[in-house]
Each structure stands twice: as C-alpha cells, then as structure tokens.
Design a protein around this nucleic acid. Structure first.
Lengths: 194, 194
DNA sequence: CTCTGGTGTTCCGTTTACGGAACGGGACCG
DNA sequence: CGGTCCCGTTCCGTAAACGGAACACCAGAG
C-alpha cells in the first residue's frame, strides 16, 4: 500500500525530476516528495493526478499484495506464471509454462478455490497430488484446489497453458457462475469444440 | 475515480449496513457516508481500511476511468465488456460481445495504444472509423487506437471476441513484445492456425 | 400513541494533506 | 571565489478529510 517507491520508480523510468513531475501533474513538490518517501497518505485525487501524468492507471501503483500468490519461477525449469486478476477478486488468470522435469508442487489454497487449466501445447499432468489428471493440446482440466496439487509435463515438450484460479463468491457461495463471465469465455478452447 | 457507488454495491452485496461496515473498518460513519456519496476524496489509508474489510483488493474499486472505456451496455444491443488487467498496466484484456445493430463507437485513446481483437464467433467489422477491418471466427484484427474507432457486426449474428488494449511500454517504447507474454498467448487463436 | 433500535445524513472541532515559498546541496561557469 | 541553475527536502498557513455526536427518519413492539 506504500505507493511511494513505485511512483518514484515510474518517474525515474521516464527521466523526470521530482520538480518536473510535480509541475506536470499540478501537485506541489512537497506533496510529491512526501508521497514518494512514504511520509504522506495521499488522497485519491492527488494520486490520480500523478499516475495519470505518468500514463499508468491507478492500479499500476497499487499492487494487491497478499491477494496474488504469484508463484513465479522458483527453481530452474520451474513453472512460470503471469498474472491477470479481475476487479472483483473472484478469479485470477495465469499463463503457465511447465518445463520438463520434476513435478511442480503447489500448496493447498483456501477452501472453495477451484483451478481450471486449458492446455495449449504439450501434454500436462496436473491436479491433486494423489489424483492428477492429464490433458493435451486443447484439453481442459479442473479440480478443487484446497489440497496440495502438482503440475508436470508428460514427455519432453514444454507445456503452455492457461490457469484460472476461482475464488469462492464473497456472497452466496455457490460455484455456478461468474457474473457476466462464463468459464468457457476464458477457457481458450477451440470454438466449436465443446 | 468515484469509488462511492462501487463501495456501496460491495457493502450491499454483503448485507452490511453503513454503520456496521464503518465500525468493522474502523472509520467514521461520516467518512463512509460521504465517501459513498462522492462528497469526499478519501485517502488511501481510509480506502484501504474499507476495501480490506470488504475482502477485495483496492483495485476492485478503482476502475481506471478514462483508461478503460468500458462501454458497458449503454443502449439495447450494445457491446458488453469484461475486464482483466495486468499489474504492470501495459495491457488490459476484455471480453467483448457485439450485438447486431448500429456500430458502437469508442473515442480515441492516448497515443501509442493499440487494440488487438480476436473473433470467436460471428463476423466483426471494427477499427478506425474511416478504415474498419473485418474478421470472422478465428480471425484477428489490430489497429492503432489513438483515433476514434467503431465495432459492428456483419450480419445478424452476435459477435463474441477478445479485446486486448495495449498501452505503450513505460520505458523503451517499442511495440515488439510484452515482457513474459507474447501477443499470441492471449490471441485465442486456434493452435496451429497462424 | 410512545418507546426502542435500527437506518443513513449532517454538524462540528480536530487532525492532516495540501501547495507555495524558503531552504540546503551539488554541478557548472566566469 | 561568487553567481546561477538545477535538484530534492523542509517549513508553514490553508484547505479539507477525519471521527464522534447529534440528528431525522423508519419499523416494529408494547
């Protein structure tokens, strides 16, 4: 939630001095300085004026820290994940690459979480450690993610897939649908290949 | 940037009264009330206390207003957009549905922004208003989005597509690749159908 | 009807984020 | 050396976001 370092990094990237950015954004130098150093608690208005001038949305400086696990590549040949997440925090979309080698393990998530994987390339064997599933290109897997689970390639080909992490609905709690968005919508399945 | 309505909606979803949420979040009722009604310009600290209590990340209530056009269903048969966005704010992914009828218009975005559309179903005619492009199922379109552009169906079938909004790289500025993510990765194209 | 317990809004004194100006510190030049 | 021109930080009066209390309103109970 401390946006200071991020703001400063973005400003530096653009080769702007503090004075310049303050002038461009129409905020006081004192404000920007204090903000970058974490000495102030900016209002949305102030923060927006600055991020808009930097050309990034507010969300760029507000990483949701504990909400996005982001298990990015721990060891060599490990899985590599890229992150999307929706605004209601009910699901997160990852790009996954699994390289040949020992299986990648993922700890149990909170109860109610489900994982949906659609394979693009390669053959993936993934799911609960005691009952993994297998899918090839175009294939689709799904499992409850409240137990430890694993990902591994079958054969020597790298696997490319999408991974959808579904969190239980904040209210209600049924798992039937995401409002305005069907699971199929992001399953990357070939059209006409139900 | 007016987070009020979103906060109120989230609170309602959870069946919380204003007084309850204010107490849970440790903020004054006056603050929450004024905030929901857009009469105040909250600090990050205040906003975070509330969103944390609602169980959503800050980003859930901060739709980047003019950065995400989000032309959600203005008129009957209008386009409907669903949002993803990455954490580096270099691209945003939408699901798009275009219903038959008059073309949907979108104003120019900031310079350097490109749009990439991949059609799932139906036939789409979209692009700069003076030079639209056409694509059917599996087809792919791309154009610079710094001019007004439009979306329309060809024929009476509803169009379903993905829309990728690419913002210019903060540093560098070339359009060659998204770090760790190739355009192809999210093009929804059929594998083996370059 | 009155009373009680809840809602959300408004009043108001306190706290604090705000921007302009003043400041200290280098880099460069004469 | 002094003078100039940037940088980023600190000072300080003003504007505004803050929380607590008072308020108007409504629903149900007695």
């Amino acid at each position: 939630m401390d946006v200071g370092p991020r703001i400063r990094a973005l400003r530096m990237e653009r080769g702007l001095s503090l004075s310049e950015l303050a002038r461009l954004a129409g905020v006081g130098k004192a404000t920007l300085s204090g903000l970058e150093n974490g000495l102030r608690n900016p209002t949305l208005e102030t923060l927006y004026a600055i991020t808009a001038q930097l050309g990034v949305p507010l969300t760029a400086v507000l990483s949701a820290p504990e909400q996005t696990p982001t298990v990015r590549g721990a060891t060599v040949g490990a899985t590599l994940l890229e992150v999307f997440h929706d605004r209601d925090a009910t699901y997160e979309l990852y790009r996954m690459r699994v390289d040949p080698g020992p299986a990648q393990l993922s700890p149990a998530h909170q109860t109610g979480v489900t994982e949906h994987v659609t394979v693009f390339a390669g053959v993936l064997r993934a799911g609960p450690v005691d009952a993994p599933l297998t899918a090839g290109p175009g294939g689709y897997l799904r499992w409850a993610a409240d137990v430890p689970h694993s990902y591994a390639t079958v054969g020597e080909e790298q696997v490319r897939a999408s991974l959808l992490l579904r969190y239980p609905r904040p209210s209600g709690g049924d798992d039937r649908h995401i409002p305005g968005m069907q699971a199929d919508d992001i399953s990357f399945r070939r059209p006409g290949n139900a």
